[in-house]
Amino acid sequence: MSIQHFRVALIPFFAAFCLPVFAHPETLVKVKDAEDQLGARVGYIELDLNSGKILESFRPEERFPMMSTFKVLLCGAVLSRVDAGQEQLGRRIHYSQNDLVEYSPVTEKHLTDGMTVRELCSAAITMSDNTAANLLLTTIGGPKELTAFLHNMGDHVTRLDRWEPELNEAIPNDERDTTMPAAMATTLRKLLTGELLTLASRQQLIDWMEADKVAGPLLRSALPAGWFIADKSGAGERGSRGIIAALGPDGKPSRIVVIYTTGSQATMDERNRQIAEIGASLIKHW
C-alpha cells in the first residue's frame, strides 16, 4: 500500500482519535458579512469528516447552483462504474471539434489522439474542462443518470439537468442544476469515506481534487503551510461562485467545507476574496 493510499485508508482512524471539535460562531459572522459585502445569498456548511456531524452552517438547506462543483460527483459516478466493471479508466475516447464547448483548455489539445477516461476526469476536476465533463456525462448516460446515481446514494436534493455550459445559467428560483450545502457536503463525505467506492477509487477521487489547479484564489489562499486540501470550485452566471473541499491540518483532511453564493453584482475577484476570507476565519478558529 502506498503512503497516499495509507493516508486515505486511515482518515477515519486518525479522526477518531482527534480531540473533540467545537464550532466557532466567528466564522458564521464572516459568512454573514460576506453576504453584506456581496449583496447576495451565501450558503455555508462545515462537517466533521469522521462523524458527519454538522459543526457550523448557514442557509444549509437553500438551493444554490452547483456550477462546476458537480464534476466531482460526476467522476465519482464514473469511478463507481469502474468498480462495477462497467468502465475502464484506460479506455480512450475520441471526439471532434464539434464536441468542444466553451472553456476546454485540455480537451482542445487532444482532438487528434483523444483522451482516456482517467485523463478526462483529471481534466474535468483539476482544470474544470467543460468538454471533458460533457464527454464523461455521455459515458454514464447524461445528466439524468448522474441525478439517479445521487438518488441511489441517498441524495434526493442534488440534481443535474443540463450539460456544460448551460448548467451554469443560475436563474433565480430555478431548481435545475442545483444542490443544497448540506446535501453536497453529505454526498461528498460519502464519496470520500464511505463504502460506495473502493479504496482505490476513493484515493483516485481525492487525488484529482488535491491536484486542483484553478481554485488557488479561494480556500487555498488562506491555508497555512502543512495543511491538506482537496477541492473543486465552480463559477456561473449572475454572480455565482462555489467551492467544495476536504481539508485539515497535519497533512490530512478532517472536515468537509461547502460554500456557495449566487445573485451578486460583485466582480469575480471580490467573490473570490470573500470566500478566501471565510476560509481564513475557519482556519483561525479551527
Rank of each mutant, 00 (worst) to 15 (best):
L136D: 00
P25V: 11
T139S: 12
L205I: 10
E145K: 14
P217K: 14
T178G: 03
P105G: 04
G43A: 08
G52E: 07
P249A: 08
A34T: 10
D33R: 15
A246F: 12
A40N: 08
P253K: 08
K144C: 12
S2F: 11
H94N: 13
I244F: 03
T126W: 04
D231K: 04
S2G: 07
A34F: 09
H285A: 09
H285C: 11
R162H: 10
H24G: 14
G236C: 03
G154H: 06
E164Y: 05
L282R: 01
A84Y: 10
E145C: 12
C75G: 09
S51A: 08
E270D: 15
G43F: 01
S104H: 06
S233N: 01
I93F: 06
W208G: 02
Q4F: 10
A9G: 11
Q204S: 12
R118Q: 13
S264D: 04
D207L: 12
A9L: 07
G142C: 04
R271S: 09
D129R: 00
S104D: 02
L49T: 08
M268F: 11
L146G: 03
A280H: 13
P165A: 07
P165F: 05
Q37W: 13
D113H: 11
R202P: 01
G226S: 11
A235R: 02
S122M: 15
V258I: 10
A246Q: 05
G39Y: 10
Q86H: 13
V82R: 07
T267W: 05
P60E: 14
L111D: 07
L192F: 12
R220V: 04
I125F: 02
T131K: 02
P25G: 08
A15I: 14
L191M: 14
S201R: 06
L218A: 04
A34K: 04
A40S: 10
E175L: 14
E26I: 14
C75Q: 01
E46H: 08
L196F: 13
D99N: 09
R92N: 09
I256V: 11
E164D: 01
R162I: 02
S51T: 14
D155N: 06
H151A: 14
T107W: 01
A182N: 09
M66N: 02
W163K: 11
L111S: 08
S51V: 06
L73I: 14
I278F: 04
H5P: 09
T116R: 06
Q86I: 14
S221K: 13
G216L: 08
P172S: 12
L55E: 08
R271W: 03
T139H: 09
A211H: 14
G194E: 12
T158D: 01
D174P: 04
M153Y: 08
N98L: 15
G85C: 08
L167V: 13
I171E: 15
L111I: 13
M184T: 03
A9I: 12
L10Y: 09
R59L: 04
A40V: 06
V82A: 10
A132S: 08
L73G: 07
S254G: 13
N272T: 08
N152G: 14
K190T: 14
P165E: 06
V31A: 08
K213L: 13
I283F: 11
A40M: 09
A222G: 11
D177F: 01
V257I: 11
P172W: 09
L137C: 06
R59K: 09
L150Y: 08
I275C: 05
L219G: 03
A211P: 04
R118K: 11
S254N: 13
E277G: 10
S96F: 11
M127R: 09
T107C: 09
S233R: 01
M115A: 06
I229V: 10
S122Q: 14
L223S: 07
L247I: 11
T262N: 10
T158Y: 01
A77E: 09
H285T: 15
E145Y: 10
P65N: 04
A276C: 11
P60F: 10
I140W: 03
I259P: 00
L137T: 07
D207W: 12
G251I: 07
Q4T: 09
E35Q: 08
M67A: 15
R118L: 12
T69H: 07
Q203S: 13
A215T: 06
I244V: 13
A215L: 03
R176S: 09
V72P: 13
R63S: 08
A183E: 11
L205A: 03
I93S: 03
E145M: 13
S2L: 14
E175P: 15
A183F: 08
L197C: 05
K53P: 03
A133H: 01
L167S: 06
M184W: 01
T186C: 15
E237W: 10
S51L: 05
D174C: 06
L55W: 07
A215R: 04
S264V: 05
I125Y: 00
T186F: 15
H5D: 09
L160A: 11
Q37N: 15
T193Y: 15
L49K: 04
I275V: 12
V117L: 11
F149M: 11
I140D: 02
Y44H: 03
L146K: 00
V82K: 06
S281D: 08
K30Y: 05
S240A: 13
L191H: 05
P143H: 08
V214A: 08
I278R: 00
T186N: 13
F149Q: 07
D99K: 08
I278H: 00
P20R: 13
I283V: 12
V101I: 12
A77M: 11
Y95K: 01
P224I: 03
D177E: 02
Q37I: 12
A34C: 10
C75V: 13
K190C: 10
C121T: 03
E119I: 01
A34P: 02
V101P: 02
G239K: 02
Y103T: 05
G248M: 01
D155R: 00
D33G: 13
D129Y: 00
L219F: 09
R255Q: 03
I54G: 04
L47R: 03
A222V: 13
I206L: 15
L167F: 04
M180V: 14
R41M: 11
Q265N: 09
R118D: 12
G263D: 09
E46G: 05
H156N: 14
R92Q: 10
H5M: 15
A280P: 01
V31Y: 01
N130L: 01
P172A: 14
R63D: 03
T107P: 01
I3V: 07
R63P: 07
A276Y: 10
M66W: 01
S80I: 10
S221W: 09
L192Q: 04
W286P: 02
C121W: 00
S264C: 07
T27D: 04
M1R: 01
T112V: 13
Q37C: 11
I243Y: 06
C121F: 01
A40K: 03
D99L: 09
G251K: 14
T27Q: 06
S240D: 05
D207V: 11
E145T: 11
H94A: 11
H110Q: 09
L28Q: 08
T138M: 13
E62H: 08
Q97F: 15
D250N: 15
T178K: 02
L247D: 00
S254V: 12
F64M: 07
N272S: 05
G114R: 03
K32H: 12
E277Y: 08
R63N: 06
K232C: 01
E169T: 13
Q88A: 14
K32M: 15
R92F: 10
R159C: 06
V257K: 00
R176F: 08
E270Y: 08
S2T: 13
G76S: 11
I11C: 14
E26L: 14
R255Y: 02
F22Q: 12
L146C: 05
A200Q: 15
V82E: 05
L196E: 15
D33T: 15
G52R: 05
F70M: 14
T69L: 02
V258S: 04
L10I: 11
M209Y: 00
M1A: 01
D231P: 04
A124T: 11
L218K: 02
E175I: 14
L191E: 03
R220I: 03
P60I: 12
T267Y: 08
M268N: 07
T187H: 05
W286Y: 07
D155L: 01
D99P: 05
E169A: 14
G154N: 08
R271A: 11
T267A: 13
M1H: 01
G239A: 04
M127G: 06
F17H: 09
L197S: 05
A182M: 15
F22K: 09
I206W: 13
P143Q: 06
T158A: 05
G154Y: 05
H156P: 11
G226Y: 07
